[in-house]
């Protein structure tokens, strides 16, 4: 048996089934999304009365919708929208959340209380409810959906960061840093952030999946991506009344959402195993 330590990290990672499966799925989704920038089988908004509601065929691999638009093309561009929403929303949550979390951990006392209690309040609302509230306030639209999903991500990251950072603050080398005169900012950058990065990467992957689901939900409710711009959630909504006659219209975007969420969760799972030092030790022992 080859020792994991002797292997190239990428090769090691690929031996992890969740990580490999998750990566493969996400590469496929990402590939389709990137491809849609340069090529889709048909123009994504091309409406054609003659070609509407076709079942999957050689010409239209996933069939056409009620306006005669190619479903595969729309799923590809929809992937792009979902990923864009995920990336931006998670970034908002990550940057703001990490800033707040590290501040809370470094400062302690009232700052800690303020950040954590505010997070608790925001947490009390389920993610989708917060997003609904925010889009109701800002109005429907893709950008507002991104902001809404980003905002409900902030306390998630703030909490995770604060917990992990507090642990690091309690360790001896941090104390040593303090002893040689490093300030809280210095310590946060030099010691805390590198050490909590794995936790954040895993959390970001999970939140990415949550963001994709939330975007689909908001678009389904008419509050997210606006037509004619394609979105998986919106496609599900449009398919709703056509379910009895043309079930594939609901199945394909549904599968796309499920696959993306599954892929990200597997990826997150795998990354946690690979990145978490404690688990790494455990894996090497077994």
């Amino acid at each position: 048996m080859t020792s994991l330590r002797a292997m190239h990290p990428v090769a090691a990672a690929l031996r992890h089934p969740s990580l490999a499966g998750g990566s493969a799925i996400m590469l496929l989704v990402l590939g389709l999304a990137l491809l849609s920038f340069v090529w889709t089988p048909y123009p994504v908004d091309a409406i054609s009365a003659a070609e509407r509601l076709q079942t999957p065929s050689a010409a239209h691999w996933l069939g056409t919708d009620q306006f005669g638009r190619d479903v595969l093309s729309r799923i590809m561009v929809g992937a792009r929208n979902s990923i864009a929403v995920g990336v931006v929303a998670v970034s908002i949550g990550l940057f703001a959340g990490v800033a707040l979390g590290t501040w809370a951990a470094a400062r302690g006392g009232w700052a800690d209380e303020l950040v954590m209690r505010t997070s608790d309040v925001v947490f009390a609302f389920p993610a989708i409810i917060s997003a609904l509230l925010i889009t109701a306030f800002l109005g429907p639209g893709a950008v507002n959906a991104i902001v809404a999903i980003g905002i409900f991500n902030i306390p998630v990251f703030a909490r995770v960061t604060r917990g992990a950072a507090q642990q690091v603050w309690g360790l001896e080398y941090t104390r040593a840093g303090m002893a040689i005169g490093k300030g809280p900012t210095r310590i946060t950058i030099d010691h805390v952030l590198p050490n909590i990065a794995p936790v954040l990467i895993v959390q970001a992957t999970i939140q990415f999946a949550v963001a994709i689901l939330a975007e689909a939900a908001l678009s389904y409710l008419g509050l997210g991506t606006q037509p004619p711009s394609p979105s998986w959630g919106r496609m599900l909504f449009d398919a709703q009344t056509l379910m009895a006659l043309h079930p594939t219209l609901a199945i394909f975007p549904g599968v796309a959402i499920a696959l993306a969420v599954l892929g990200l969760n597997l990826l997150g799972d795998g990354l946690r195993d690979v990145l978490d030092p404690r688990l790494r030790v455990w894996r090497m022992v077994t």
Binding site: D45, A46, I47, Q66, F67, P140, G222, Q226, P227, P228
Partner: peptide, 23 residues
């Protein structure tokens, strides 16, 4: 209105009119 809007936006696009849909 909602469906008609999507179709009309596509038809207007053919003659060079860019329509933004606001539900």
């Amino acid at each position: 209105a909602r469906r008609g809007g999507e179709i009309i936006a596509a038809q207007l696009a053919e003659v060079g009119i860019e329509a933004e849909l606001i539900p």
